[in-house]
Amino acid sequence: MARVAVVQIPGVNCEYETARALEVVGLTARIVRWNEPASVWSEFDAYVIPGGFAFQDRIRAGAVAAKLPAVDRIAAEAERGKPVLGICNGAQVLVEAGLVPGLHPGRVEMALAPNRAPRREGYLCRWSWLGVTPGPGSSWYARNVRPGQVIPMPIAHGEGRFLTADPEVQERIEIENLVLYRFVAPSGGRAVRYPFDPNGATLQAAGITNRAGNILAFMPHPERATWLRQVPLELKNAWGESRRAAVGNWEALEGPGPGRILFQSLASNLLSPSAEGARPGREARS
């Protein structure tokens, strides 16, 4: 049994569906409040900070939450090799906490800036297309992804543009393949324009890991694409075809959607019997 803490920071609002998505891949999820006793955090094997508007995104998205003692505890567990996934607002928290990309752990090296696209500012809710570039995070978060596979998933954010002012940081994340997930065109090719590049992020980044690969800051919402029923009927590509073919078939609709692959990857690491002591995060650190 692998236990995952879904961290409930005040203002977070995706904790329930995120917990359900973790449960459906065989993990045991518990929603843990930010102010629970400090001793509680070490009991878990993995941590997910879900989406929302933690502390109202005061100052900057994720900035206040990043200073919570609970986040320090989670960072300490990550240091021991446990995986930490931040989704959307959770990603913003991880970046503001200096955990991603974490070249110099604790230093804030990137920001999630307001979306930038021609004639389109502010919050944006739509489906996007993702591709994977193998890197240190592959094993934890993209284990079952085939090369060239295009994964549709929805985004919903106003500040999702990964950005750094430091050319060295940019160079390192590029050379070390820390951009695990990036926005692509539906064909799998580079996203050169809106809406395939929905927010103007550096390197079209949708998800960036730390060097060890056990921490992922991920802007799209895999928990909104974990069941086939969540896929829009009009989505193009094979996922849309499966969705249309499943009209009238509840069992098929309760089956996996494209975003489940991320949770499955996490689960297969946490649940594999050989995982103890040989988790990819630890390997990368050794």
Binding site: N13, C14, Y16, E17, R20, A21, G51, R120, G122, Y123, L124, C125, R126, P154, A156, H221, E223, R224, T226, W227, R229, Q230, P232, L233, E234, L253
Partner: peptide, 17 residues
């Protein structure tokens, strides 16, 4: 497009579809 139509994960058919 400004409205979050999918939070809570219950949606089958979104506004406008």
């Amino acid at each position: 497009r400004y409205y979050d139509t999918e939070v809570q994960g219950r949606m089958l058919i979104r506004a406008g579809e």
